[in-house]
Nucleic acid binder design. Structure first.
Length: 291
DNA sequence: TCTGTCTCCTGAGAGC
DNA sequence: TGCTCTCAGGAGACAG
């Protein structure tokens, strides 16, 4: 699932496929859950425009257009942005792959889950937005517009400080993990990296946020930045559907300490990793290393 | 204001 | 083998 590292890797990888290429045509599927802005308005707004740059705010990608407006993309859980040149088994579901001959299982062809296709004036490849579960979000942002989805975002997770976490957690009865997942507090952290950062800082996910000490807040903020930076370096986590725009898998999943390792031995102490539900989310931790 | 619950969606995997 | 059910998760809406 795309969190800050996967979105940042997508942003960097997408630059050569989008920036500076005049958009000739945009195809979309019918209005659905992914289109915050109606798809016909998106098509009109993008056709003929050129993406000048791509920014990131938390887990949102902002395509800066040459007319001053922006097109905003959130990948949700299963969103994929990739070039038509990309080849990866992750671009099709296992069910879809099983119905195809081996030679056609890697090369992607637009399917019903492909909600947008960008075509360009040059001879270069199209760019696809695909999202099986439709938890992604697509919307236009006018120049100088302040969108409530972006306005509420807290400090970017790569810049989070111990003091910010400590101040944000005072008087909060919610578990510390729920606080980390609150995008209004830290923008960019999701389930995987919250678990990993809590492990590295030695804090259990179910601890009440207000009970976290200043020293623990510092360790936690350091751990958040550390796991996110490391994941970006390794291309993100390809645990389920995530694939970079060039078709490459990330490698951070091989470095996980706790996430989705229920019952496996802790890499530090050997104790079995525990899974429990915290704030309606699965949380994984080491009962020995995390207090 | 804070917290918990529900909702959206669909593929994967478990269980029968 | 095939069917049914449960689970996973980001984030907004809503109720208490």
């Amino acid at each position: 699932m795309p969190e800050l590292p996967e979105v940042e890797v997508t942003r960097r990888s997408l630059l050569p496929f989008l920036v500076g290429r005049p958009v000739a045509r945009v195809k979309t599927t019918r209005p659905s859950y992914v289109f915050v802005t109606p798809p016909d308005r998106i098509r009109k707004a993008l056709q003929g425009r050129t993406v000048q740059d791509i920014d990131r705010l938390g887990k949102y990608l902002l395509l800066r257009l040459d007319d001053g407006n922006s097109f905003v993309i959130h990948l949700g859980m299963t969103g994929q942005l990739f070039s038509a040149m990309a080849t990866s088994p992750r671009l099709l579901s296992a069910t879809a792959r099983s119905s195809l001959p081996p030679e056609e299982q890697l090369r992607f062809k637009p399917d019903p889950h492909t909600h947008m296709v960008f075509s360009f004036d040059d001879e270069g490849p199209d760019v696809y937005f695909r999202d099986v579960r439709k938890f992604g979000k697509l919307f236009l942002l006018a120049q100088d517009e302040v969108h409530p989805r972006l306005e509420r975002l807290g400090l970017d997770a790569l810049e989070v400080t111990g003091e910010h976490l400590f101040a944000s957690s005072r008087k909060r009865k919610t578990p510390i993990k729920a606080l980390l997942l609150d995008q209004a507090v830290v923008a960019g952290v999701g389930n995987i990296y919250a678990d990993e950062a809590l492990f590295l800082s030695g804090v259990r996910p179910g601890r009440r946020a207000a009970r976290i000490t200043r020293a623990e807040s510092k360790r936690l903020s350091d751990a958040i930045r550390q796991v996110l930076q490391r994941s970006i370096e390794t291309g993100g986590s390809s645990i389920s559907d995530y694939v970079a725009p060039d078709g490459q898998d990330g490698a951070y999943q091989d470095e996980r300490h706790v996430y989705a390792r229920k019952g496996e031995p802790c890499k530090r102490c050997g104790a079995a990793i525990v899974r429990r539900v915290v704030a309606q989310r699965s949380a994984h931790y080491c009962p020995q290393c995390q207090k």
